[in-house]
Design a protein around this nucleic acid. Structure first.
Lengths: 263, 263
DNA sequence: CGAGTCATTGATCTGTCTCAATATTAGTGG
DNA sequence: CCACTAATATTGAGACAGATCAATGACTCG
């Protein structure tokens, strides 16, 4: 069934990139770190910039950083100095309450920006943890601000990124406050699929990089309920689940579950 | 019991302002609309600006706008052009799902900025509704961006405001996903008290500007549960409730409820 | 291959929802 | 000013979705 899904690092986007040689040069950082060369430039910060503006942007990424699976990109309380653009890999962000309860606040993939939570208090408010080996572009926030003042298109884009996060969280609030387990999981899957699709992946299958517990935390339900709901969808022929592998059999039905209120 | 709470518009901050004469001149808009004159400048956008910078900022507020109780400052789908700073009154913001479910995403009071949700798609993603007669400062977003490029302190402040909203919503996610009814309501009350206190109000009593249903929507519980939880707190001698009037009798206990996980 | 992590499934329990009745307040017009 | 109506709030009883507790199964990785 799932034999076809063999990608070792499904959310990695290296395969969308230039020839292997260029890639390895990137990795060694002997090659200049540059947005204008990056395969993610249409998903990431540089979106909509002219060639000239892109050149200006190249100074923004100070360096790149590799994070091993399970490693912290930053932790709650850390001094905030930079934003990060994810190049490869997959992250979760989570806040931890005083009494130790963990709440996953989001899952981030290539081209997405993390670290915005740190701006308000000059220190991070959550943990960003790699769910698979990952690489990020380090963008000192001072640079971002300096360049934003010079490139209005970039300024607007930074504002949009923050606004997008606010709107996303509004949606999560709706999810958590109003929806039932099935609707939450359907919304979650549809959201992941849509974002992966924008990155060149299939609309009909995906590999979950996170555990049932992490999904449950994000969606406000227990891991057992996540598992049961997966099984239910499977029984109904909507999806096929085998551990972390999920294949979508009936995309429309999934949408219906997401949108249908009561029933 | 509650006879002492007689403020007609409890969350209005006019009383913190300069002599009445100045106020009425403001109101007639024959007097120049200016942040540098505003009593909220230490809570609102101009915070931390020098006198000179404040002068520059005075051009930012294009005009003021009065909203009657129940009126929409903006609605979901409206074109986004401006941010609003609340001068007086109290708002709720809410998103409405396709099938009509309403989710209150926040309550905003004097000095707070609304409209950030509109930046990402150039149209508003939620409704902003006045819960009492209100007045806002209209700040065209283009002006805000133009000025941000010239005044780094303002630029940083705009970023902080957006980041603060992201962090706030992270907290709400934790609330909705992990906490029980009592913890949610305790957190809600403590948050309101703290913000009102920063505006010169009592730490021990407040008037709820919103209905039980709106509180419930925000906190992900039904209005009956909100009511019951109020009654429970009341029975336990933690608060005194009479409709919209709430007096805090045991602030510490409220904090304990908020922080204690299981119990 | 074996230990540990992660996922599935079942049985039972419980916090909150739902439905329903009543009480209180705010608003309206005579 | 009071009566009437609609909106809001309180309280009770019963139902249910999801939590909790518990056992087993599957996969991963050194």
């Amino acid at each position: 069934m799932f034999n076809e899904i063999t990608q070792e690092e499904a959310y990695n986007t290296e395969h969308l990139q230039r020839p292997a040689k260029t890639i390895s040069m990137h990795a060694e950082s002997s090659f200049k770190v540059a947005c204008s060369n990056c395969n993610l430039r249409e998903l990431c910060l540089p979106i909509g910039l002219s060639t000239d503006e892109m050149k200006q942007l190249d100074g923004m990424v100070a360096t790149r950083k590799k994070i091993k699976q399970g490693g912290h990109l930053y932790s709650s309380g850390d001094a905030f100095t930079t934003l990060y653009a994810i190049r490869t890999g997959f992250f979760k962000t989570c806040v931890v309450s005083e009494d130790g309860r963990e709440q996953v606040t989001g899952f981030q993939m290539a081209g997405e920006i993390v670290g915005l939570d740190g701006i308000v208090a000059d220190k991070h408010n959550c943990n960003a943890i790699a769910l698979e080996d990952a690489e990020v572009c380090v963008m000192p926030f001072n640079h971002v601000e300096d360049l934003s003042r010079e490139i209005p298109v970039l300024q607007r884009h930074v504002h949009k990124i923050m606004s997008r996060e606010i709107v996303r969280e509004n949606g999560v609030m709706m999810l958590l406050a109003n929806m039932r387990a099935e609707e939450r999981l359907a919304a979650f899957l549809l959201n992941l699929l849509q974002r992966l699709h924008a990155r060149g992946y299939s609309k009909s299958e995906l590999i979950l990089r996170m555990t049932r517990e992490e999904i449950g935390s994000y969606l406000g339900m227990k891991l057992e309920t996540v598992s049961r709901t997966f099984s239910k969808f499977s029984d109904e022929g909507i999806i096929e689940v085998k551990q972390k592998n999920v294949r979508i059999l009936d995309h429309e039905k999934l949408k219906t579950i997401f949108n249908s209120s009561t029933c």
